[in-house]
Design a protein around this nucleic acid. Structure first.
Lengths: 151, 151
DNA sequence: AATGAAATATACTCCCT
DNA sequence: AGGGAGTATATTTCATT
C-alpha cells in the first residue's frame, strides 16, 4: 500500500494526538470526514497504523524508576526467557538485538527494592547489565516522510 | 493527585486504545460520559495522562531498520549532543543513563546506508555501539496498579 | 464528584459522482 | 477515492443533587 501526501498528513496529526477527530483532521487537510475515516480504516487494515496508545506518567502512577536492562542469555535459556518476558509486567518494551547481548528491555519499577527483585528474576536466564534512566531526552518522536532529509 | 480504582479502569482502557470514546468507557465502568470526560481532563491536567500517540509501522512507511545505539560522550561533548539530538529525526527515543555509556537511543533507518550515514553523524560526539533490532518481543505493554503483584 | 438533559459536534452509512 | 445527506452516537455545557 502506498502512503501518499494525504495519508502522511493524516499520520503526522494522529501521531501528534491520537484523539484528534476525523472532522478536525479533514478540515486541516481539505478532506471530508468520511474520506479521512476511510483512509484511516485502510491504513489500519494494512497495518500501517498499529494502534492508538495513551502515554501515562510512570512517575505519577507509582513507578519511580526506569531502567534499561540488557541480557546475555545462557545456553538454551533464550527461548524460555522469550516466553516468560511477556508475563513480566515491569517490561514495557523488549527487543532481540544483535551483538554481545541478546536482549534489551525497558523496565519500570516502583523503587530500588523492586529493581533488585526484578534483577533476581533474570539471573536464571543470563547475565544482565542494568542502566538506570536519568532523564528522557527524546520521547516518542513522530516520524514523517522526510525524516531523512530533515536531519 | 490520587489514582483511584475508577481512574485506573479508565487508564487501562485508554492505554489499550486511546480512541475509545468516553461513552464506551463509561458504559464499561458504570459511569456517565461527562463523568469520564471530567476524570480524563483532571488526569491530563495533573500530568498523569501525558498524551495520545498513534503507533505506526516503521517498516511499512519505509524504515526497514531499527537500531539501539549507545553513546559514550567525549569530554565536553555531551551537552552539544543533547542539544543536537532533538534534530536527528531518526531518533524516536533517547535516554540519559547511568553506567559506562551516557546515552541510549532508539533509532529508525531506511537501510544500511542510512545507518552508516547516521553513525557518522555521531562520531564527533563520542564512541558509539550499535545493536540492530531483530524483533520486538514486547511492545508498549500497558501498566496497571497491580503490575508488581502480577509478575 | 456525579447525573440527566439540552445543544453542539462528530461519526457512520449509503448513495452519487 | 471522495463528496454530501441523513441518522446515530458522542461530546460539552449546565443545572441539580
Amino acid at each position: 500500500m502506498q502512503t501518499d501526501e494525504l495519508n502522511w498528513a493524516i499520520l503526522i496529526r494522529l501521531q501528534e494526538n491520537a484523539r484528534y477527530s476525523f472532522a478536525k483532521i479533514g478540515r486541516e487537510i481539505g478532506l471530508s470526514s468520511p474520506a479521512v475515516a476511510e483512509r484511516v480504516k485502510k491504513m489500519e487494515d494494512a497495518g500501517i497504523i498499529k494502534g492508538y496508545k495513551t502515554q501515562i506518567s510512570y512517575h505519577q502512577t507509582g513507578y519511580q524508576l526506569k531502567a534499561i536492562i540488557t541480557l546475555r542469555a545462557f545456553m538454551g535459556r533464550l527461548k524460555p526467557f522469550l516466553e516468560k518476558v511477556k508475563e513480566f509486567k515491569e517490561v514495557i518494551n523488549c527487543y532481540r538485538i544483535t551483538g554481545n547481548e541478546n536482549i534489551i528491555m525497558e523496565v519500570v519499577l516502583r523503587n530500588q527494592a523492586h529493581l533488585e527483585e526484578f534483577i533476581d528474576k533474570l539471573i536464571t536466564y543470563g547475565e544482565t547489565k542494568t542502566h538506570i534512566v536519568l532523564s528522557q531526552v527524546v520521547a516518542f518522536a513522530p516520524i514523517d516522510k522526510n525524516t531523512t532529509k530533515l536531519s
